[in-house]
Amino acid sequence: MWLATPLPALSVAVVFSRGEEAQAPEEESAAPLHMEHLAATEESAAPLHMEAPEEAQAAASEAPPRTNSFLFGCGLSAITRKVSFPGGGDDLREQLTLRTVSLGLGAPDVLHVLEVLGETQEGTIRVPVATLRPSLLTSVYLGGLELTPPVTFWLTAGTGPLYISGQHLVAITESEAAAKALVEREAAAAKASAERLAAAKAPVEREAAASKAAAKREAAAKRKAAFKASAKRKAASKSSAERLAAAKAPVEREAAASKAAAKREAAAKRKAAFKALAKREAAASKA
């Protein structure tokens, strides 16, 4: 199991050695300071050593991993007898620590057997980890049973409900944490850049929307004006046709009257001719 341990502190020790001259009486300390004394003091001072950046990075990479702990829990019953915990993948160092197994309300007074299916180098194995019965034992503490995902919990006997609780531990090294922090910073920077871009585009989009709305209003006004002009032309054409028809009406009435008079005159002529013919025939028959 990975445990969270603090990083070792990098300490730098600076040691200055005191020459015998420092312990001399006060009257001797008043003597003039010669170059030999300065050289001796410089040689007696311990050199100051600083770790190179590569060594500091190596020390950080060799630091123990940091563990993140998450609550784990699941329930088994007659409907759901198996629950699998696949884990986060092969690249993630993680562990599942079981704490308690307990029966819930309504569990019948029969044996409830919980088995765990896990992977080993030889293959998949089944291991019973808890046997409970409401009248004898309703809960058991597993003492931190450590499992490596993927694992499957199987209620092989009983109908439950049976509940499992524990911890999901995920180990993250400092380099992984730094990479994750870098990814998060890049994501935050990308989000901030997108927000700034959206804020910069907002006035342009509003202006474009306003221009589009103005164009729509102008097009609607043009269509309305064209419709009104067409209606006016139609009304003018109708009134012109009405005036033309009104002007034609007397002429048509006069023509109709002339035609009717001509018909009456022709009828009268035919009638007179018929009478004259009848008179001549009558005179001829008497003679």
Results as ranks from 00 to 15, higher is better:
G73V: 09
A181S: 08
R233N: 13
K212R: 15
G118S: 06
E186F: 05
G19L: 15
P64T: 05
R253N: 06
L71C: 04
Q57T: 11
A261S: 14
D91C: 03
E55F: 06
R133F: 04
A268F: 06
L33W: 15
E195H: 10
L98Q: 02
E146C: 11
P8I: 06
E119H: 00
D91A: 12
R66Y: 11
S139P: 00
A30C: 07
G87H: 07
A287C: 12
A202M: 10
G75C: 15
T67M: 08
G104R: 09
K232G: 08
L147N: 03
V170A: 13
T131L: 10
E43Y: 00
V116G: 01
E205I: 02
R66G: 02
S239F: 04
P8K: 14
K269V: 09
T97I: 04
E21I: 00
P134T: 03
T67N: 02
L103I: 05
I172G: 00
A189S: 01
L132I: 04
G106E: 07
N68W: 08
S258P: 01
L169V: 01
L142R: 03
E242M: 08
Q95M: 08
P32Q: 12
V251F: 01
A13D: 13
K180G: 06
L132G: 00
G106C: 09
A171E: 09
E207G: 03
K232W: 13
P161I: 00
H49W: 04
E115H: 05
D90Y: 03
P161S: 11
T41N: 05
K279I: 12
P64W: 11
V129L: 03
A241S: 08
G118V: 00
A208P: 04
A214R: 11
T148I: 01
K82S: 09
A272S: 13
A256C: 06
L98I: 10
R217C: 05
A241H: 09
